[in-house]
Design a protein around this nucleic acid. Structure first.
Lengths: 137, 137
DNA sequence: AATATAAACGCAACTCAATTGCGTTTAGAG
DNA sequence: CTCTAAACGCAATTGAGTTGCGTTTATATT
């Protein structure tokens, strides 16, 4: 992602531009799938961004709606850059039980579920498919 | 739940009948919603079942398909007794962002999603609705 | 009923992702 | 250039969940 675009995104979110955060956004954007802090740390090794700083940056991105955060069954947060803007997850995710990787199924259309039972206010919806990915099946 | 019924369930699962496990199954069955280990410990205080024993019993129940296990966004396992038999979750769950409680939406019908993209083998499906429950809205 | 044995249990110690505290550095507005 | 709040790094802490290990107990078999 271009530096100018990243500056614009951070500015619009009310966050400061720093080399670490720019590298983080670019890395998430290029991955185009949810990543753990560990995966991010490995990928940004040369940038030297601290583990705590990564978590804090991701938290502020989350609050600003720049990323989605999800658990995929192993009690580890995964973060994905997402430009859809909605607070709820805009697309389902596929979790491979063999390699553990998570993918965004941006092309899968989710039908509307009329779950507006009495008194329930539904703000977000998350859908997970679990099984084997093409590489593992 | 009756003692005979519990004995039958445990026997069918190849597990021994113990007072602790019987109390655990009955408690989960009466709750009819996913509970954390902490909630279970509080509810079974008088039974004195140890935290580790609860986790180990729940794990064996999980393997036997007697319970479902899910994460509801706070990195804490929740376990629910479920007689549906399927390994995948047979119904969606509602998570209240205010009180944190999770409910099984057994009455909500999930439409089939044709997500059988090339190479993906889908074994389970989990659907979460997040928002406010009747008590918190 | 007695015995054998594998499962279940309790306690203490451990793991590890995530968070907190705190002092230092830096971005960016004025 | 200066000032201030945001961002950062390091070390210590938290807490759900797990592991090791010795003891107890359910239950099948003699």
């Amino acid at each position: 992602m271009g530096e100018e675009k990243i500056k614009e995104i951070l500015h619009q979110a009310g966050l400061k531009y720093t080399p670490g955060r720019a590298a983080l956004i670019d890395f998430l954007w290029r991955a185009s799938r949810p990543l753990t802090q560990e995966e991010i740390s490995l990928g940004l090794k040369e940038s030297g961004l601290n583990k705590v700083s990564i978590y804090r940056a991701l938290d502020s991105f989350l609050q600003a709606g720049l990323v989605h955060r999800l658990e995929s069954g192993d009690r580890v947060w995964k973060f994905a850059f997402c430009g859809c803007g909605s607070r709820g997850h805009c697309h389902p995710h596929f979790i491979c039980r063999a390699c553990g990787k998570v993918e965004c199924l941006t092309k899968v259309h989710l039908p509307e579920v009329a779950a507006s039972a009495q008194g329930y206010i539904i703000e977000e919806q998350e859908v997970y498919f679990k099984g084997l990915c093409p590489g593992c099946s």
